[in-house]
Design a protein around this nucleic acid. Sequence first.
DNA 1: TCTCTCACATC
DNA 2: TGATGTGAGAG
Length: 504
Amino acid sequence: MANGGDRFSIPERVDIDTDSPKENLRENHTPPSPQTTCTPQGMEGIKVYLHEQELWEKFHEVGTEMIITKAGRRMFPCYKVKVTGLNPKAKYILLMDVVPADDHRYKFADNKWSVTGKAEPAMPGRLYLHPDSPATGNHWTRQLVSFQKLKLTNNHLDPFGHIILNSMHKYQPRLHIVKADEHNGFGSKNTAFCTHLFSETAFIAVTSYQNHKITQLKIENNPFAKGFRGSDDMELHRMAKIQGKEYPVVPRSSVRQRVCPTGSLFGGGARGGLHPYSCENGVTSTTQDLVASPPAHYSLPQPDPQEHVQVYHSNKRKADDSCPAEEHHLYRKPYTDSSPSEDESYYHPPAYSPPPLHPSVQPPHTGLADSAYRSEAGVRQPCMFAGSEPRLDELSCTTWSYSCPLTPAMTPTEPYTTFSHQPYCSSPQNSQLSSIAHQGSPPLGDSLSHSPYQTQSSGPYQTPQHPSPPFREYHRYPASLSPPHYLTLHTHNRGGVPEWSEPT
DNA sequence: TCTCTCACATC
DNA sequence: TGATGTGAGAG
């Protein structure tokens, strides 16, 4: 498509904040520009700034790709945010999830991404609980919140709690801030939370990089890949040696992606994700930035058959290393790519343009937050909430399951077998975390295409035009639940009481 | 042809 | 030790 068509365009928010998005283009701002605003109980004033936004935008402009492997691969750039506006003494839980950005499957051909069919069934939606959760507002705001430990996998049976994605599908990471205040009725309809997303963090999951420019950006900016930075011919020699071929050798990727487009199907570029989010009234709020105009071929996603949420606790908790992305290296030109790809003025616009996020991104509904909250005394570790990848408009499903995996060796081979599926139904009273997990994967695009994304309130949830979010009451997670165990929390409709059970 | 997995070298 | 991209080879 013309203009903007070559990259994700960010839709205009309906509830535009006074903060100027453009001021958020720079990383390490001091102070950074607010990305979001929440208004519900105790959540008003919360703002989130994407760290290294410029880097994200660099990738976004080309069409961010994230490698997914069976063992799990970290995201790069890593997702780091600066949060402000939290009550210093109140406790919050920060979660991240990655939801489908649309209902399509993509392919990279002719140096551009294009839709090649309908998306595969969504993977079990999982939420990544920041290892520091729950923590006080003071804790979250005094430093950057890094989700660098989060890993992406294509292993549908992943026992490590990594976020499961489908290759060649586009996703949108989201951040959820849940107030874990005992007086806040955590896990109940009173749970206050905010959801934030930065459109420039959208990406296509791949098992191997497709766009050479992305490979270059990764190598250039990821310290862990500096081994591939080499200078000039040094690398060629190295590669030649490896391949036992005569120098010079052109990396396969270079060949395959000789003509590298500069545009991205993630249109919107720098413009996106910079809009401040605002939450509407209500106890719970969700704010998101939307991705631009809906793709021409955009089609409504099918309801996801799965409706469960899995909670995962990683068994390891390391000091949060700083994101390597922060290192910016100047380096040589990419490989031998002599192709014009580097200056491709002839970049082919992606056939797809991200659709707007679904307005029904509901407040989080999961006992998970609770669990995290309860585990404060215990080990703080990354926690994954997995569930299906329901559409945003189906968040009302009330059956949720949470699993906290043990060490890899102890994890069940069928992490999702404990999930139960129940027909969609809405209940006016449930915890909102579950909804987070739920929303977990609704094609954002779909939602957005229906209405401009806006924040939602959770209170007694009321969405005349959308299924009400799943409101359920959850039992607190047993303290022992933390990391080492796979447990499933079965929640029943009607705000039913969740039950813990060992995974089968 | 396309996608994925693996062993590998590097840091 | 673990994270990274590479590239051959499998499916």
